[in-house]
């Protein structure tokens, strides 16, 4: 699932980022990393961009085309069985 298809306000984890090198570098510089938690706060009118928030507190306005290149997966919630 990619970031642009994400349901609003459901935190996920970035699985991969695959776009052209300059945009990847810019995302990296902004502080976007694989493995980081992310949620989509809203979509812009006309569907042009998404407003996303990362676990670091960083919020970005991101073109939907970039968001489509970022895949996400559900957060793994640790389940403890038994007693320690």
């Amino acid at each position: 699932m990619s970031l642009d298809e994400l349901t609003l306000a459901v935190p996920m984890v970035i699985d991969s980022i695959a776009t052209d090198a300059s945009i990847e570098a810019r995302l990296y510089a902004l502080g976007v990393r694989v493995g980081e938690s992310v949620e989509v706060l809203r979509r812009a009118p006309l569907g042009g961009a998404v407003h996303v928030r990362f676990a670091s507190g960083l919020e970005l306005a991101m073109d939907a085309a970039i968001a489509a290149c970022v895949t996400v997966r559900p957060r793994v919630v640790p389940v403890y069985v038994g007693t320690e």
Binding site: I23, L30, H51, E59, A61, I66
Partner: peptide
């Protein structure tokens, strides 16, 4: 460049 901007508080 496609839109990619920080939205500061």
């Amino acid at each position: 460049l496609p839109l990619l901007l920080e939205m500061p508080a």
